[in-house]
Design a protein around this nucleic acid. Structure first.
Length: 356
DNA sequence: CTCCGGTATA
DNA sequence: TATACCGGAG
């Protein structure tokens, strides 16, 4: 496995300027430029930076504005600002030498786990396994590992996997070889499996699932819910009353109160609302007078987008009978503020529209 | 249009 | 743990 990989890398690896050097400064510079950036886009920036700032002292002496100007077009400009900060700190605190210690190098701005391992292994040949997007892909396929690469557990497992696989004699070459394999052969789409030097070790290929890997955490798909609340006004001699309902558990707003509610999967038509409101409030009869929507709003929760409407429903008090009062609580309108309501319903109350 | 990606930060 | 940062590719 190691042998086929390193032979493949020697024959097929691209010749890139940052691979022709052991200079930690040049390697750091290239790694920061290549974060979130393709080789063919980053190359000219790397050459310009190295030309303008041949060593870390030259960079440390630069103006931020000048650095950002050179960075222009690369995106993620905090990388450029952190580049300068780190150059200055390395000059001040480490005499211009990139630290050889993982914790120390990680403490520098813009250097995280990946970049630290890359610098330490490429420049100093220290045994640190890097894990970048290429390596997630290669490792997930080699071992047919379907843990999400962006989950806490997945990150831990893939780092351990990379550590276990690391060639401790040649950590720099090893890290670069796997990344190059990911970039040239084990690509996100249409991997060139027939050209792969380690196909015989690839569990995903054997299982025919290489196209399904790596797995990412299912992004919590936002569910849309359409909630229509009915502000009921019961006209009676002892003052105007309305109906409220305490929400059960197992859903949002557990234990809070709400108005009579019709929920639908899509935006409800006027006809559907009439039908549903007669089911919900049978005592309203067929001549229920519905007006609205009075008020609408969207309410975003983590995994839900609520589309909320408020309607007004006027009934005379004799239409409301107590035996129907299993689900609803009849209260005087002035008592509304004695009950806890979810934010969207309070917003409706505060809108004053329900007095109309 | 959506997806992708290291690091920092809340 | 989630999200902002950016530009390029599909």
């Amino acid at each position: 496995m190691q042998k086929s990989l390193s032979r493949w890398f020697k024959l097929n690896g691209r010749q890139l300027p940052w691979r022709e050097t052991n200079d930690p400064y040049a390697i750091w510079l290239s790694e920061v430029i290549l974060q979130q950036t393709r080789v063919d886009q980053g190359m000219s920036y790397y050459l310009r930076f190295l030309d303008r700032y041949p060593d870390i002292f030259a960079l440390a002496a630069a103006d931020e504005e000048e650095v950002l100007h050179l960075w222009q077009g690369l995106g993620y400009y905090s990388r450029g600002r952190n580049l300068l900060k780190t150059a200055r700190r390395v000059v001040e605190q480490f005499d211009g030498c990139m630290p050889r210690d993982y914790k120390q190098i990680c403490s520098l701005p813009g250097i995280g786990a990946y970049t630290a391992s890359a610098i330490l292994s490429f420049a100093y040949n220290l045994p640190h396994a890097c894990v970048d997007g290429n390596i997630y892909r290669v490792l997930s396929r080699l071992g047919a590992i379907d843990l999400p690469i962006d989950s806490t557990e997945g990150k831990k497992i893939f780092q351990e996997e990379a550590n276990a696989l690391l060639d401790k004699e040649n950590p720099g070459l090893h890290n670069q070889a796997i990344m190059e394999l990911g970039a040239l052969v084990c690509t996100p789409r249409m991997p060139r499996c027939t050209e792969c030097p380690v196909i015989s070790c690839c569990a995903a290929y054997k299982l025919g699932i290489h196209a399904e890997l790596p797995v990412k955490r299912a992004k919590p798909e936002v569910k849309h819910r359409y909630l229509t609340f009915f502000f009921v006004r019961l006209l009676s001699s002892d003052g105007n009353c309305t109906l409220i309902h305490k929400r059960p558990g197992g859903d949002v707003w557990q234990g809070l109160y709400e108005l009579p509610l019709v929920e639908t999967e899509q935006a409800a038509s006027e006809d559907e609302l009439y039908r549903r409101v007669r089911e919900l409030l049978p005592f309203a009869g067929n001549d229920a007078l519905l007006t609205g929507p009075l008020f609408s709003l969207k309410h975003a929760l983590t995994h839900q987008q609520l589309h909320i409407l408020f309607y007004f429903l006027e009934l005379s008090a004799d239409q409301y009978t107590d035996d129907a009062e299993t689900a609803f609580k009849k209260i005087r309108i002035e008592e509304l503020d004695q009950y806890p309501f979810p934010k969207p319903i309070n917003l409706f109350f505060e809108s004053d529209l329900y007095f109309l």
